[in-house]
Simulated assay, not measured.
Amino acid sequence: MQKIYLILSFVFTLLALVFSIMPMDTIALLPIGLAIAFCLLTIRKSEGNKVKIPKWLLTISVLCSVFVIGKTLLIKDEVVVDQTFEQQKIETKQEAKKELEELEQLENDLE
């Protein structure tokens, strides 16, 4: 049973690392929570000197959780209006209107 817990804690710790690096916000807390739970179960079932690997995995999982929570609380997503793009869009509309007016003028002259 200890080996199964160790394998599961290793897998979920890897998933926690991957999810915490990717921009997934609080979704990363799910594999982190599972990794911490399985690491604690592995430490509980382990004997004596077999506790070293689960402790390392637990440390990595806790660091991932601190990173994800810090990233969620400290980094704010902001949408900034790009003034140059808006200006280009207005200029493009004006140019298109001028071209249409020129085409209408040419059409009227041909008639």
Rank of each mutant, 00 (worst) to 15 (best):
A96S: 12
Q87G: 06
V81S: 04
V79M: 08
V62H: 02
K98Q: 12
T92Y: 15
D82I: 06
T84F: 10
V80L: 09
K76I: 02
L63C: 13
Q87W: 08
F85R: 08
F67S: 04
T92N: 14
E78Y: 08
Q83V: 10
V62I: 13
K71L: 01
V62W: 00
I75K: 05
E86S: 10
D82S: 07
D77S: 12
S65V: 07
Q87D: 14
I90D: 05
C64E: 01
I90F: 08
E78M: 08
K97G: 02
V79L: 13
V66Y: 06
I75V: 10
E78N: 09
I90R: 10
E91W: 05
I69E: 00
E99P: 06
V68T: 07
L74S: 07
L100Q: 11
C64F: 04
T92Q: 15
E91A: 11
T84M: 14
K97D: 07
I90S: 06
C64S: 09
K93A: 15
L73D: 02
E86H: 09
K98N: 11
L100W: 01
E91Q: 13
V66Q: 01
E91M: 12
K98F: 12
Q94G: 06
E99D: 15
T92D: 10
K97A: 13
E95F: 13
I75E: 03
T84W: 11
G70Q: 00
G70E: 00
L63D: 01
F85G: 07
Q87T: 15
Q94H: 14
K97V: 12
I90W: 04
S65Q: 09
T72C: 14
L63E: 03
C64T: 03
E95I: 15
T92P: 02
L74N: 07
F85M: 09
K89H: 11
A96N: 09
L100F: 10
E86D: 12
S65K: 04
K89S: 11
S65E: 08
L100H: 08
I69R: 00
E99G: 08
L73Q: 01
Q94R: 14
V81Q: 05
K71H: 06
V81H: 05
V80F: 05
D77R: 07
C64Y: 01
L63W: 00
K98Y: 11
E95Y: 14
Q87F: 15
L74K: 05
F85Q: 10
Q94M: 13
L74V: 03
F67Q: 05
S65L: 13
Q94W: 08
D77M: 04
L100E: 12
K93C: 09
V80I: 13
E91I: 06
E95L: 15
Q88M: 15
T72D: 10
V68H: 00
Q88D: 14
K93P: 04
F67L: 07
K97L: 13
F85A: 15
D82H: 06
C64R: 01
L100D: 12
D77K: 12
K93M: 15
K71Y: 02
V81D: 03
Q87C: 09
E78K: 11
I75D: 02
K98A: 14
Q83I: 08
T92V: 14
V62G: 02
L63R: 00
Q87P: 03
A96F: 10
L73I: 07
I75R: 02
E86G: 03
K76Y: 02
V66M: 09
T72R: 09
K76S: 04
Q83K: 11
S65H: 03
D77N: 12
